[in-house]
Design a protein around this nucleic acid. Structure first.
Length: 807
DNA sequence: GCAAGGTC
């Protein structure tokens, strides 16, 4: 009695290697991967074939592929599964091969996607299988092999412990596909149309949105924002050198540079005080010497993400390109399968023979040979995720065998492999603590004891740093004390490699899709890659709504999908719930984008077509456009929300004040009312608020307002009342006006802020300081001096009267 | 013209 079993792997290469591992002793599987072996007590003909990834792609039905329909309809649209590769004819192949077979055994990758492909396969093979005598299909003979490594023991174990495919896991993937398709397309279509109508000069024909690509871009954009909002601060540091001294106090040996315990001081006064104290000291004393052996561990086995990071940061090859090269090396048989998350070698992995092969290599053969003979280090640590073994060399290649970048990638993979089984790097670090007066300094030296893996992975090597021999309590001569001024600098743009790390940390994308997401945001011009260091710099096409670009957005949906996979929730309910949630987000987004736009257009611009960039929205980072109003934006920014300030004008001459468009509409604190300009805002720290710009009380009779310095009025400086229309403008002689911090008019009854006045260069006048109400010299500088002085006279009179009445 | 995830 005999039977036939059709076995299906996820990719051709696996069909080949697994069938080789399963074919009985000495009998190689034929190129078509057919062999005979015993199965469940009878002789069986095995046919091992494969699909090529997913069999189907999800798409909308035709009527929804029309960009003219309301994107909101997509959330409830009908979807269909279409065969993924039309030319490949995978469905046809499966139907053909499954005709009349007794068993179907599914060898798809053992992850959720693989489980989903199982059911895509079943859809095609179930029909043709041999039926039960009563004509029912033999579902009990559709089996699932579960394996965690492509090794003989593991594959045999899987063959002997066949189970059934897990439908819940597959349903979770179906839900994920439908969710991503609907949400992605709805937002993408809406955004694209909205911005294409608004701006003619977009650098991209489509502004896409997706649960992976958008958070990825968002990492780059938030770093961009950090850089743009960074303001450098000056700091000071002590640069001190000492030297050993002879019996007569003469210097012997070269200078030793010390690093200061405090590193940086942000107060110049403190820094100079410390410097002069240190200068007064005649000697430095060694307080302690310590020496410690340290270890830098050899790397774990190589996985995809590590390869991508190295490619980008050390070889200057982008992730997409790196994967293309790695795949080519794989199909040519030079390296193992390059898409894996696993960082530990399977227990029965033949490290010895791989290493022995490499001992023939032109460049590192000698090192590999020595390692082989002396005995390599068995790797410890790392993770077995159960997908594929780590990336290792499979065949020796010398530089001449491979071209350019292929060789560089192969070179790295192999050095990494050898490094991962080499000894650790060991070094001795010596540290000396040195005191000068009350200040503590240190210096250190490094001696490499055993280079270990860094011999082969030279980019990770350490070099000796010689430290002269010092003793505890030794007195050293101070040879140099300098105060060095520096400036804090903003962080740099994220490197591609840092973005990959962030994606990995937040679970965005997979080893197979990370390169695709990065490639996506580059190709669509959302970011550009800086040539040298491969840093990702956002272009003007930035994100729209921060809520939607949070990396947590993906993990929330992922959590819901897990419930389906575990069989704890019904697929239809979860999907409906998530889609409803995002349909609501979509509506909110759509209405708000429109509202925001209307609001700004109504307030600031009657003509939306032309005009220049006015200021930037602190929430969405889009530029707001401003058309032909009288007052210009002066580059001042609201520190609370990042919006650029604008001048509000009533239209009458000189009457106006600065205002933050965001605080104006969305007051940042309870006691700040809607519709307030900066000149009435009581915020304690904002540099533009009333608190920090009020000069004196309004001098108009019966007005209880405050005269506020209006920084947006420069170069024509003015003080304006925040209640009535009273304005005092400075004459053209004045170049700058500012409020002197913590200084008030000596006249206790007045108590106005002291103003600092700077004159224009051609005036040849020294800056002035004083009270605008009580000092004539300052009041003279006002164009409407008379008004001011008249009012002052009245005020003084009132004060005097009040004083009199008090007595 | 649109997503993400497999694989080539």
């Amino acid at each position: 009695m005999s039977c036939t079993a059709l076995m299906i792997a996820e990719k051709p290469s696996l069909a080949e290697s697994i069938s080789k591992l399963l074919a009985p002793n000495g009998r190689q599987a034929s190129p078509v991967h057919e062999y005979f072996a015993e199965f469940r007590g009878s002789m069986c003909k095995f046919k091992f074939t494969s699909v090529k990834g997913h069999v189907y792609n999800l798409d909308f039905t035709r009527e929804f592929n029309d960009w003219n329909i309301d994107p909101l309809e997509l959330f409830t649209a009908r979807t269909i599964k279409l065969e993924a590769s039309k030319s490949g004819g995978i469905c046809q192949h499966l139907r053909q091969e499954s005709k009349g077979v007794d068993y179907v055994i599914l060898w798809l990758d053992c992850d959720r996607e693989g489980e989903n492909i199982c059911f895509e396969v079943i859809k095609n093979v179930r029909e043709g299988m041999k039926r039960l005598p009563d004509g029912r299909p033999k579902d009990s003979r559709i089996l699932r092999a579960k394996f965690s490594a492509i090794t003989a023991t593991d594959i045999r174990r899987a063959m002997n412990n066949l189970t059934f495919p897990n439908e819940n896991e597959s349903l979770a993937v179906d839900a994920r596909q439908e969710f991503d398709l609907k949400v992605g397309c709805a937002f993408t279509r809406f955004q694209t149309k909205f911005f294409n109508q608004k701006y003619g000069n977009l650098d991209s024909s489509v502004i896409s949105y997706g649960p992976c690509q958008t958070p990825t871009l968002s990492f780059c954009v938030s770093r961009h924002d950090q850089i743009k909002s960074f303001s450098p601060e000056p700091f000071w540091t002590l640069s001190v050198s000492v030297a050993k001294q002879g019996t007569n106090g003469e210097q012997c040996g070269s200078e030793i540079h010390l690093s200061w315990e405090k590193a940086r001081v942000f107060d110049k006064h403190a820094a100079t005080t410390i410097q002069s104290m240190v200068r007064k000291c005649k000697e430095a004393k060694v307080i302690s010497i310590s020496s410690e052996k340290k270890t830098k561990g050899r790397p774990h086995a190589l996985n995809t993400v590590e390869l991508l990071k190295f490619g980008s940061s050390n070889l200057g090859i982008g992730p997409h390109e790196t994967m293309l090269i790695a795949e080519r090396l794989y199909t040519q048989g030079y390296i193992s399968y390059p898409r894996t998350e696993t960082t530990t070698y399977p227990k029965n992995f033949d490290i010895k023979s791989v290493l022995k092969d490499q001992s023939r290599h032109d460049l590192w053969g000698l090192y590999a040979k020595e390692l082989f003979e002396k005995g390599f280090e068995w790797p410890t640590g790392g993770n077995d995720v159960g997908d594929h073994p780590p990336i290792t060399p499979m065949r020796v290649a010398n530089e001449g065998d491979l071209s350019g970048d292929s060789w560089r990638i192969y070179n790295y993979v192999t050095r990494h492999f050898i490094g991962s089984i080499s000894p650790n790097l060991k070094y001795q670090k010596t540290n000396a603590i040195i005191k000068i007066g009350d200040e503590t300094f240190e210096c250190s030296g490094i001696r490499v004891l055993q280079p270990g893996f860094s011999t082969i992975m030279h980019w990770r090597s350490m070099s000796d740093q010689i430290l002269q021999e010092l003793h505890k309590d030794e007195i050293l001569k101070i040879t140099n004390v300098k105060l060095v001024e520096g400036q804090t600098s903003p962080p740099d743009y994220l490197t591609e490699s840092e973005v990959i790390s962030l994606m990995e940390k937040h679970g965005i994308g997979t080893d197979a899709s990370i390169p695709a997401h990065i490639n996506n945001i580059c190709q669509r011009n959302y970011v550009t890659v800086q040539s040298s260091a491969r840093r990702l710099v956002p272009t003007n096409l930035e994100k729209i709504d921060p809520e939607l670009s949070l990396p947590t957005m993906r993990s929330e949906v992922e959590k819901q999908l897990n419930y389906i996979a575990l069989g704890r929730a019904k697929q239809s309910e979860v999907l409906e719930h998530c889609l409803n949630l995002f349909a609501a987000k979509f509506k909110y987004f759509r209405d708000n984008v429109a509202q925001m736009d209307e609001l700004f257009e109504a307030t600031f611009s009657p003509l939306a077509s032309t005009g220049k960039i006015l200021t930037k929205c602190g929430n969405c980072k889009r530029y707001l456009k401003y058309i032909a109003l009288k007052y210009d934006y002066k580059g001042l920014q609201c520190p609370l929300d990042g919006f650029g300030l604008v001048s509000f004008s009533t239209g009458s001459k000189d009457i106006g004040y600065p205002l933050c468009p965001n605080c104006y509409n969305n007051p940042p604190f309870e006691n700040i009312k809607k519709g307030m300009g900066c000149n009435r805002c009581p915020h304690p720290t904002c540099e533009h608020s009333l608190t920090n710009n009020e000069v004196c009380s309004c001098q108009v009779n019966s007005c209880n307002g405050q005269m506020v310095l209006d920084a947006t009025s420069a170069p024509k400086w003015k003080l304006s009342c925040n209640v009535c229309n009273f304005v005092s403008v400075f004459t053209d002689l004045v170049k700058g006006v500012s409020i002197s911090k913590d200084e008030y008019c000596e006249n206790e009854e007045c108590n106005s802020c002291v103003l600092k006045i700077e004159f224009r260069e051609n005036q040849n006048k020294k800056p002035l300081k004083g009270c605008i109400l009580c000092e004539d010299e300052i009041a003279e500088l006002l164009e409407n001096k008379e008004v001011m002085v008249e009012v002052v006279a009245e005020v003084v009179a009132t004060i005097e009267e009040e004083n009199i009445s008090k007595f």
